[in-house]
Simulated scan of single mutants.
Amino acid sequence: MSEDTRARILRAAKELAEEQESVQGVTVSLESVSRRAGLTKQGLMYYYSSKENLMLGMVEHAAARWDGLLRDHTGAAPEALSVFERYRAYAAVATSAEVSRADYWVFSEALYHPKLGEPWHRFLSPWFAVDDVADESRSLLTAARFCADGAWMSEATGVFPAENLADVGVRAQELIDQAEAQGGYR
């Protein structure tokens, strides 16, 4: 039962973040989330004792969702894939328009609250590991990731979204192909 309640709370918080006119204007409070989830504030605080804990729960949920999208796309864990397969998956997922304003909001909150970056690092670092990649290939992979990052951020915020998101994904994939063709590994 508690997992259902936790999921309901996180869904309510995400809905509130999605409904905002602008990402900067997002107001998610314990009161607003508890009302949306059909709980008392004290009932919500049983699961998330503070706004910080609620935010950590939202970030954990969003980062796990991205990891799940990547695993679903590849059918594998990141450790079972080559660096190029991992980056191809990220570029494909990030440019598929399956983006969320709430995911962007909780992602950007890490700038102001570094503790909120930890779940993103934990879930996504395995997808971005480039330890054994040659420098030239590494910079191309980074450029491809930045291309994909920019695409999902533009789509999530609605600020200068791509006219053709699929083309952006193709260009990111071309950078990854170029990185692999250069030999890729040290």
Rank of each mutant, 00 (worst) to 15 (best):
V59Q: 01
S50H: 10
L69T: 00
A37H: 05
A64F: 03
R6W: 04
N53V: 06
A17E: 02
T74K: 11
E79G: 11
R71D: 04
R8K: 13
K14C: 08
L81H: 08
E31G: 00
R11H: 13
V23C: 10
K14A: 07
K41N: 01
A64Q: 12
R8F: 01
G75Y: 11
S29T: 15
E15D: 06
L39W: 06
L69E: 07
T74C: 11
G43L: 15
A7C: 05
E31V: 15
D67R: 03
S82R: 06
S34W: 04
H61W: 11
G57I: 08
E15N: 12
W66R: 15
D4V: 02
W66L: 00
E31K: 14
T27N: 03
G43H: 15
E18K: 10
E19N: 09
Y46M: 15
Q42R: 12
A63L: 05
T5L: 12
V83A: 09
L70K: 05
T74V: 08
T40G: 13
Q20R: 15
S22C: 01
G38A: 07
A63S: 11
N53C: 03
I9W: 12
L69V: 03
S22Q: 01
D67Y: 06
L10S: 01
S32V: 02
A63E: 05
A17T: 05
S50E: 07
Y47R: 01
R6P: 14
Q24R: 08
A76S: 14
G68E: 14
A37Y: 08
S32M: 14
L10T: 00
M55I: 04
R65A: 07
A64C: 07
Q24P: 00
G43C: 15
I9V: 13
D67T: 05
N53T: 08
G43E: 13
A76T: 09
L44E: 00
L44N: 00
S82L: 06
G25P: 01
G68A: 15
K51S: 14
T74P: 05
G25N: 04
E60G: 07
D72F: 02
E21Q: 12
S82P: 09
G38N: 02
E18P: 02
L56W: 11
K41G: 00
L54V: 07
E52A: 04
W66N: 00
D67I: 03
K14W: 06
A80Q: 15
T74D: 09
R71T: 14
A76Y: 14
T5D: 07
E18I: 07
Y47V: 06
T5K: 13
E3I: 14
I9N: 01
E60A: 10
R8W: 03
E52G: 07
K41R: 15
V28Y: 07
S82K: 10
V83D: 03
L56V: 09
S29V: 08
R36C: 12
E18T: 05
L44S: 00
S82N: 12
V23W: 05
R71W: 10
L70N: 04
T74N: 10
L16D: 13
E52R: 13
Q42M: 09
S49M: 11
Q20K: 14
V28A: 03
T5A: 11
A64P: 00
Q42A: 12
H61M: 02
A77V: 04
D4T: 02
P78C: 12
